[in-house]
C-alpha cells in the first residue's frame, strides 16, 4: 500500500468539506430489539471509512440503513448536505450509493460483462423483447475496468471459473459502473487470501482517490482495516464506541475498543 499516505492527506483535506453522507443519532428497533441506539457516521469524498464492531454491535444494521435496505426508526440522514429519506435500495442507488454485499450476488454461469450489467443491460429493440447490445456493454465494461486498473480481467470467462479476488473485483466494478458517489462494501476480504485482500485494498484506495466515499464493514482488523483505510469507526451495542485515524492506532487498540475492554487486554488473534 504505497499510496497510503497520499490517501490520508486527501482525507485530511476532505474533512473541511461537507460530508457526502452524514447520519446522526440513528435509532433502529426490530420489535423489542434495539439494534441502533443513536449511532452516527460521516462519509467524506475520497476517504475510506472502516466500520468495525463485534457481532451484534450494529454495524450491519447501520450500513443497511445507509443503503436503504432498512429504514431507521429515527434519526437524521443527510446526503451532500441535504436531508434525504431513503426507503429502498433503489432510492439509495438513485442518489449514488451502491452496495457490494458479502455474497457478491454474481451469477457464476455468466461472464464479467453480463454480471456487470445484470439487470441494467444496454439494449435495443429486437424480436422477442429487448436485444442486448453486447458490443456496447463490452466497451463500457472495458472502460470501467481499465479505470479501475483491472484491464486484464477476462470479459468472456464465466465468473465461476475465476478466483475469489477476481470475483470480488467484478462485484466492486459492478457497483461503480454507474458512477456512484459512495460505495459500501460488506466484508470484502472475508473469503480472500492475504494477497488477494491486499489487492482489494489497493482497488478500494484507487476508488477513493477518484473521489468516491467508501464504507467498509470488516472483521479483518489486523491485516485489512489498519492498513487499507483512512478512518476507523468502532461500534458497540448499537452506538459509536470510538473513532480512530488509521495509522494512529494498532489493531489491538481497535479490538479493545470493539469489546469494550481495558488497555492491555489483548484479544488479537
Amino acid at each position: 500500500m504505497t499510496d497510503m499516505s497520499v490517501g490520508r492527506e486527501r482525507h485530511v483535506q476532505a474533512q473541511g468539506a461537507a460530508p457526502l453522507i452524514s447520519m446522526r443519532n440513528i435509532h433502529k428497533k426490530f420489535g423489542s430489539l434495539h439494534a441502533l441506539r443513536g449511532a452516527s457516521l460521516d462519509v467524506h469524498a475520497g476517504e475510506v471509512v472502516a466500520l468495525v464492531g463485534d457481532n451484534g454491535a450494529g454495524k450491519s444494521t447501520m450500513v443497511k440503513v445507509m443503503a436503504g435496505a432498512h429504514m431507521a426508526t429515527s434519526g437524521e440522514y443527510d446526503f451532500e448536505g441535504k436531508p434525504v429519506k431513503i426507503n429502498s435500495p433503489t432510492d439509495a442507488n438513485a442518489l449514488g450509493i451502491q452496495t457490494v454485499y458479502q455474497d457478491l450476488a454474481l451469477c457464476s454461469n455468466l461472464d464479467a460483462v453480463q454480471n456487470l450489467f445484470l439487470g441494467r443491460e444496454l439494449t435495443g429493440s429486437g424480436l422477442f423483447g429487448r436485444r442486448i447490445k453486447r458490443a456496447e456493454c463490452e466497451v463500457k465494461a472495458r472502460e470501467v475496468l481499465s479505470r479501475m486498473r483491472l484491464g486484464n480481467l477476462s470479459l468472456t470467462r464465466p465468473v465461476g471459473a475465476m478466483s475469489g479476488g477476481q470475483r470480488q473485483n467484478i462485484a466492486i466494478a459492478r457497483s461503480i459502473l454507474w458512477t456512484p458517489k459512495v460505495v459500501i462494501l460488506d466484508e470484502p476480504t472475508a473469503a480472500l487470501s492475504h494477497s488477494a485482500a491486499e489487492q482489494v485494498g489497493d482497488l478500494i484506495r484507487r476508488l477513493a482517490d477518484q473521489g468516491l466515499g467508501i464504507v467498509v464493514v470488516s472483521h479483518d482488523i489486523h491485516n485489512f482495516v489498519v492498513n487499507a483505510t483512512d478512518r476507523i469507526e468502532v461500534m458497540r451495542l448499537g452506538a459509536n464506541a470510538a473513532s480512530f485515524r488509521t495509522g494512529d492506532v494498532t489493531g489491538e487498540q481497535v479490538v479493545n475498543a470493539m469489546v469494550g475492554g481495558n488497555e492491555g487486554v489483548n484479544l488479537a488473534g
Binding site: 450476488a105 454474481l106 457464476s108 441494467r120 429486437g126 436485444r131
Partner: peptide
C-alpha cells in the same frame, strides 16, 4: 441475444442475485 434469454440463465444460476439486480 435477448435480455430475456440472459435473465433465464441468471435466474437459474442465482435467483437471489437476479432479484437484487
Amino acid at each position: 441475444q435477448t435480455q430475456f434469454g440472459l435473465y433465464l440463465y441468471a435466474v437459474g444460476n442465482n435467483d437471489e442475485a437476479a432479484r437484487r439486480s
